[in-house]
Structures are given as structure tokens and as C-alpha cells.
Design a binder for these strands. Sequence first.
DNA 1: GGGTATTTGTCCGTATGTATG
DNA 2: TCATACATACGGACAAATACC
Lengths: 464, 464
Amino acid sequence: MIILDRESAKPLYLQIYQHIRDEIITGELEEGRRLSATRRQADNLGVSRNTVEQAYLQLCSEGYLENRRGSGYYVKHVDMSLLDSDTVSRKLQAFHRERPENRKFLYDMKYGNCHTENFPARKWRRAMEAALTEAVYGKLGVYGDNCGDWELRSYLADYLDRARGVKCSPDQLVIGSGTQQLAGILCQLIRPERCAIEEPGYDGVRHVLENHRIETAPIPVGAGGIDLAALRREKAQAVYVTPSHQFPLGEVMPIQNRMELLQLAEEQDFYVIEDDYDSIFRYTAKAVPSLQSLDRKGRVAYLGSVSKALAPSLRLAYMVLPPELKNRYDMWFSEYHNTVPSLMQDTLRIFMAEGSWEQHVRKICLANKRKHDLFAAKLERGLGPGFQVRGKGAGLHLIIESDHLTTEEMIVKCQQQGVNVYSMEKYFAMGSSRNLIMAGFGGIGAARIEDAADRILRALKTDD
Amino acid sequence: MIILDRESAKPLYLQIYQHIRDEIITGELEEGRRLSATRRQADNLGVSRNTVEQAYLQLCSEGYLENRRGSGYYVKHVDMSLLDSDTVSRKLQAFHRERPENRKFLYDMKYGNCHTENFPARKWRRAMEAALTEAVYGKLGVYGDNCGDWELRSYLADYLDRARGVKCSPDQLVIGSGTQQLAGILCQLIRPERCAIEEPGYDGVRHVLENHRIETAPIPVGAGGIDLAALRREKAQAVYVTPSHQFPLGEVMPIQNRMELLQLAEEQDFYVIEDDYDSIFRYTAKAVPSLQSLDRKGRVAYLGSVSKALAPSLRLAYMVLPPELKNRYDMWFSEYHNTVPSLMQDTLRIFMAEGSWEQHVRKICLANKRKHDLFAAKLERGLGPGFQVRGKGAGLHLIIESDHLTTEEMIVKCQQQGVNVYSMEKYFAMGSSRNLIMAGFGGIGAARIEDAADRILRALKTDD
DNA sequence: GGGTATTTGTCCGTATGTATG
DNA sequence: TCATACATACGGACAAATACC
């Protein structure tokens, strides 16, 4: 931004000239870039067009700029090898930091990725265009409901009841842009000093808690989910759990444990945050009803999202608040603007209204079941006795445990075969000595699953 | 969700039958709704299709359902006037809370609204379609950069430099879904115990601070913006200001005060949060460079958004972090997912890349200047000596102060004329006895401004 | 693909203050 | 003291290039 000093003895056109010349020399204005039109520049600076023109013409005559009638003034190439003052190099360093480039692998098995072959592109596009059209005649210009579009919440409440047994009115639903954002709101609603979390567990939410300066109490996870005896001893004011498919180990919390957890929540007066992130992907048994559906005392806040079923980049999640927390939300968040673009909300609403949502959920569940079965079978058959495949039967990832290779060794070997698999270290708040790697198959196309599995087998079975 | 008890003596088909019948009676399943197909329902419940069919047929024979071959089972009309048990009424109450209806006015002059006549619908749509097409071939399925799309940040850095004098590399930029969300992140980065705010000031951010349990210290606003002497005494660890156009009073912080504020920030070692929410709408003088542009010590975090220029419902904002805070962001927020849908980011990127952004900014500024001039002139000429019009020359709202009518009286009178104007009470953390109303003209079409102004004049000038 | 509105550089004249002779 | 030349700044009219439909 050019700042003019009208008191200065230096003429205005010279001030403009020098400023632009400096920017060209330092490289801030790159070769080929078009300058602001004289009129616009003049408006911005509050001077006459001719004043700007004078500066531009001066730069032209000195070879910094090139003028194209009817088009604009463009920066010409300047050989900077001649001048090399401190200022130049310092400025260059400040302004031209390069774009960070991350290494590419043939297959990236990052958890959470989601292959676009399954995305209902045509239907979604149609719904989005309808939403845009309807938005232009109205709600584009207003801040919507702070809880999210009422109709969308209505559809969601309906769906959640049928699919997950979640009983709620649309009033209890809050739309948000991701589990982490909603978890942040929950931190501010519940205000616990200590929150129990699963160990290992979802690091995304752990960081949210820590950033809200809430002490986290990692509770080990057993075959039945979080260890309830340990939880009882912790006496935390909240607990974050993933009962339908424990992240990342994959255990399902049995009904007895669920009842016991709710009982404990009532006894010790804490809130349960139920993250149902993965629940639609169950490939063996039928779906387990949510914790929330068993809750009679209003101790459960339920979290869900469309990231896994549709696409993570849509950034649309929802939570069901028990009445007490909803009251606090209405009190403390009434002046908040909902963070989800109305276009996204409307698109999903239209998508759900025409029945495409449930259709898609069914379809993608099947697609992932096929991928899962293929992937699991290949790995189980192919890996020798020194390996264990964990977390089968649900979700979008598998875990490989080795009794002789370290995590680091496994990752490097897989990467050498072009497959990027991941350490599970970050899911352990207190660290772990187990040799685990995580392979998410959500982002791999159905046709490539076998190849990816083969490469992993090749990587892990080589002796060296 | 239907939960079956396989241990029970009650037959499975009866359990299903009763559950659905209850839902129909309570109204949870509305007339005309299609039930899940028997195959799907059977899969979900883990029973045979015949079991489900048995239940459905029973319901048909009792008149609850209607079966259409090749289509499905549909809920028939049920006369509920006959039955009226407690259960029914309780359930009805719980599930069918009515959609909240808010009263409509001819003109809603809520601050922040934004008329869609100014929205570049065609260009935006085109950019969005391009973004969707490009997304389907890739990044739809992945969680993007936690700071936001790199290219978009690059364009933004460029624009901010030219338009607002903000000097930053794309690395310092963080994309977020609204000023409040970004302010929340700043709370967690700066972690102040006390934060000074303007009095009156933007309540949205005040609530964010309070919800992060940060004590707020309201500092009065004078002709030159926030009162620096009072701020000095406060000894807060952060201050939130709107220097380019104080919200809501409209004062511009002069250059001396800006320097002094930065000086003070250095002396007392606090951070300045600069919210540049409105800066493009200056109708008289040329734009004032931002505080950030004067900052040499890395004490300023700069906030901006596209809500006012494009549309509030897009939910896209950005902040420029000084290096120290950016380091903390990289440390503490590395595992966060960005909350802005990549589709929105890509759309804006494409929109900016083709130059439409700056073109639009200029256009909308002119459009709003016309509206502002018309509105201000009408009010100034029409209102009698007992009224003052404040906040002219910039922004998207005007303030009317009365020396004989209370705020409440003014609002009611205007509403009677079909114009909804707003109290400014919520902007005063400590309350105010002044008689002020706020009229935002952003959401009113250019052709309607005069009528809206006339109605306000009629409302306020009637004697009764 | 061709007509049209807009954007853009270009050129013109004018006003003002200052230095010069 | 006055006339002149020059530098600086401003606004309007025109034509070429461009974007849009």
C-alpha cells in the first residue's frame, strides 16, 4: 500500500514512482504483473489520474514498466544481479518464502482420507446448484440461525433417530464445521477442569481440550472400550469416548459397559461426550445403538459428522446437546454466528430431502465393506506369524502390529514400496512401546486396494 | 431406531410392529412418509425380511400403513383425537416442537445484512463450478492445510498489502470461518487473563472472550478511538480494537493514536487484535492504512473477512499472525483441521485469480456509498433538531440519537412503520443511558433506501 | 461469433505556485 | 515589479482493447 505524505517537499508523483520502483527492485512486484489502473490507483491514493500517470510514465521511460493501451501497465524484467544492497536481500527473504512441498507417495493411507470415486458428484452438484439459486434470492445476505438451518436439523434429527437411535428434537441439534469445532464449544459449555479421554484415543480432540487448558486424564482402553474402573477413580468432570468403534483400536463398547458408564456419569455428575465418528461403517454385525439413546438423565452430548460418509472437506458436523447444555448454549452463544456456510447447509438439506443421503450412506458402506474385506483378507493371509491385523470388522482403517519390526522400520519399508502408512504414536498421550502402524483404506480406490496390500506385504516380508 | 430384545418372550415381529405403531401414534412418523424397505430394515435389525414384512403387513391390516407395489410402505392418516394417553402427549411435545417463527418486517435494518443485488452471482457460480470440478479430481477427499489453501493465502497476502498496507507472507495467514472463530483461536494463542475491549464495541468478540473465561476490561471510546490513557492504566495482556472504523460508533483512530497504541503495546508487552471488519467502506477520505502496517515489533494480529464485501453466509475470514503467535499456532494447532470447506476456499481463490475480487470490492463500495449518501442525506434533512445522525462517511450503518425519545420508543415507532431498527444496548458492556438506534442499510436494496428512510422519518416525527 | 458495455491508456487543456531574468 | 518558463496537480474527452452476453 502506497502511503503519500502531502506535507513533504517531495512531489506526489515522485513518491508514487519511488515506491513502485522499490517494489520492483525488491521483487515484491514480479515480472509480468499488471499494476493497478491509473484511475483506480488515483482513487485509492486520493490524487488525480494524471499524477499517477506521470509516475507510471516515468517508470516506463526508465524501463521498469511497459504500457499496453487498453490493457494496463505491466512490470518488465529487471536484471537485479547488478544491485545487491542489504535492503533488497532482506525484503526478498521476507516476501518470497516458497510454497511448502510435501512428498508424494503412490498410495497415501492417511486416516480420514476418502476416495472421490465414491462421492455422489452429480447429485451433490445438482443439490448445490439448487441451493445457490435459492440462496441468491435471500439468505445469502444474512447470518443464519446460530444453531444451523432449522430444516437441516430437522432432517438430521430424523435420520439420527432411525439410524442411531438418537432421540432428539431439532432444537437440541447444533451444526458446526467439524468435530473439533464442536468439541471446542462443548469445552466452553461444560467447563470441566479435568476431562477423561481414551488412551489411545483421537488426538484431534485431545488437542482441543489442551488448548482450552483442560487437564486430560488418559484412561486405558480394553476389549470393552474405556476402562470403567479406572474412569471411576479419575473423578473427572467429563469424558470423551468413541463407544461405537473406539478410535483407533476399533473396540465396540458392549451394552453392559454403556449402562455402567451412564450410571457412573450420574453418580459422579459428569458429562459424556460421545463421538460417533465412524458408526455407519459396520461390516459384520448390525449397528449398535448410540450411548445417547440409552441416556435418560441428559448426561450425553452426541457428536457426528458427514466427513467420513461424504467427504472430509465439506466441513459439516453436528452435535446433540442434552437440555441443560442446550440452555447454556442459548445463553452463552446466542450472539455467535454459525460457522458453516449456508450454502453447505442448504446443499446437504436438499440432498437429504430427496433421499440421496441415506441412499449414499448405504452405498458407501457397502463399497467400504468390500474394500475392507479385500484389504483385511490380503493382509491376514499374506503376513507371517510375526504380525497381527487389528481393528477388523468396522471403520476405514486397519492396524498392523509386529512383534519384531519397530514402527519406524515398518513405515520406512512401506514407504519404499510407495505406500505411506502412519505411526500411531500421536494417539497415545502417554506413549507406547507397541509396534503399530495404521493403514487407512478410505482414500484408496477400490481397484487399487489389492495393489496397496501387496506392496505392504512385500515391504514387511522382506528379510534384511 | 428400533432396538430388539432377542431374550424377550415377545416375538420379534411384534416388537417391530409395536415400535412403528407407537411412532405413528405419537406423530414421530408423519403421514405420507415412506418406511424403510423391508430388505434394508431387515439388514439394519439383523432379522429376516419376512419378520419385517410380517410386522408391516400387520400395520397395513390395522390401517396404519398402505403398501404400494414396487414403491414401498407409506404411513396413512391416523385420527389421533381418539387416543390421548400421557405418553402420547409427552412424546408429541418432545418431538414436534414447532419451528421458531420470527416476525417479518418490510425492511430489516439489522447490521451485517447484505443485499444480494450486489452479489456477483454469475461469476461466483462459475468459480464455484470450476472449484467443484477440480475438487472431484482430488482434494475433496482429504483434509487440507490447517492454515487454509496456500494459493488462496498467497492471493490474500497480496491483496492485503495493496489495499490495507498489511505486510505479511502467506505463511502468516490463517483462513477461518468467521471473525469469532479466529478470535477464539487468538484467545488460545495469546491466553490473556484480561483483555481490554472497546466500550461500546463488538459484542460478538466480547462473548468469545467471556466464553474463554478471559476477563474483559471495557475502555471508553472517544473521538480518536479507544481511550489510550485508560488503556494504559488497565494493564491488560491483550486489547481488541477496530481502528479503521470503530464499531459501532464509527470513529477513525488517527495516526498519532495508532503509534501511541503500538508504543504502549511494546511497553506493557501486550498483543493488539486489530479487527479490520469494515475497512473497504470508506466514502469520504481515502483508506487509512492498517495498524498492522505500522507494527514493527510483531504485536498486532490482524483480522478480516469477506462477509461484508461478498456475503456473510460464505463464512470466510482470515487473520495475519505475528511470527511469535504463528509459531505457537504451528505448535498447538498442527493437528487441527481447517474449518472452511475447501470448496469455499477454492471458489474464492478462483474468484480472486481472475481479478473479480478487487473489481467487486470497488463496485460494492460505490454501491454502498450511493446508498449511504442517500440515506444520510434523507435522515439529516428530515429529522428535526431533537435528533442527531452519527457514524457518517463510512461503513454500512448509521446511528440516530434522540434527546427526547427513548431507544425503546424509537424502535417501536419504526417497527410500526414496517422498519426494524435495532437497539445498541448489547454493544455496551456496562450499559448506557443514551437514546440510540442503529439502522444498517447493507441489507436494503438501492431502490428501497429512500422508502426506508421516509418510513423512519414518519415514525420518529409523529407526535403523540 | 458478433454486437455492446466497460475498462484502459492517451491526449488535451487548465490552474496554481515557484523560480528566473 | 513584472513577465516568463517550468514543475506540479487536476479533470475531461477520446480511442483502443477487453470482457460479457
